[in-house]
Design a protein around this nucleic acid. Structure first.
Lengths: 150, 150
DNA sequence: GATAATTAGTTCTAACAGGAACCAATATAG
DNA sequence: CTATATTGGTTCCTGTTAGAACTAATTATC
């Protein structure tokens, strides 16, 4: 395998991700939210609330970071923390009325905005992109497990 | 366009990128370097040195961040800063002997390590992945420009 | 050649990332 | 029940990120 192709492909992956991030955050930041904050807002949207542990599983935020992100959302009045009655260690994070309203206001618009970038693509093509990405991901993941055993 | 496909594809992009990052950094961190530091080391490797401005262009590090990354590389004794004689504002960053030695030691191994993840793929398939990523990136970039004019 | 506009790097701020150590509450084991 | 281990969250540390403001040097303009 020619290493030049490998390197350019990896570079392209990084550039692609950065382009996505830049595109998405241009919209999200206009709402005064960071990507992580938006991630939490959307994950909680239309739900019954969840524990930090669940949020960590559903988002890409690690537990040490989550505390701070939720803190800032709480300061903005978008979420509440309530202690769980079942387990004294855990808590339930819910959207406040303000948070729910914000979610309902910005989420559909954000999806539409993201959709614009794909407007020129057929559903089939998008599925193909997803498949390619999935394969690439599995290439890293399966290899990583092997690597660990070394 | 069904939004569910859009969302799952975007999620897949994020997961794919994270898998890549996790895979790559597992190797790089073993050398006591961060991804950014490694990025600089590799960019300077086998070269004549370059200015921070050039490093910013060739890597994915922004200028405000670069100062700190180079600072830490300097503390580790891997790079030097020398003022440019041509332009009093600018400087030239070069690998020290130690930095060059480290580069030569870790870079080939890292490429081989990354190659392992692609070992089961044909060159043609990798090129296809690159093409798909490139198209996806352009979808975001072209749209972003349009968005700006709104 | 003095003034104005650019440019190269640094500094600062707010936020995040990953990981280790930590605390309190709960569950487990003897 | 009591000692131990585990779990849920927080805190702390180092490093990174993006962006804005800042400084010093250089180029452009009149």
């Amino acid at each position: 395998m020619p290493q030049a192709i490998l390197r350019s492909t990896l570079r392209e992956l990084v550039h692609c991700y950065q382009a996505f991030e830049g595109y998405a955050s241009a919209d999200i930041c206009q709402q005064g939210l960071t990507i992580s904050q938006f991630d939490i807002l959307v994950t909680l949207g239309n739900g019954q609330g969840m524990t930090p542990k669940e949020l960590v599983e559903k988002t890409l935020i690690t537990k040490g970071t989550l505390t701070g992100v939720v803190d800032r959302l709480q300061i903005k009045g978008l979420v509440n923390r309530t202690r769980s009655t079942l387990d004294g260690r855990s808590q339930i994070i819910t959207l406040t009325k303000k948070g729910q309203t914000l979610f309902e206001k910005v989420f559909p618009g954000h999806l539409a905005y993201m959709g614009q970038a794909f407007a020129h693509l057929q559903t089939k093509e998008i599925s193909h992109i997803e498949e390619v990405l999935s394969n690439l991901r599995h290439a890293f993941e399966s290899q990583k497990i092997k690597g660990k055993t070394l």
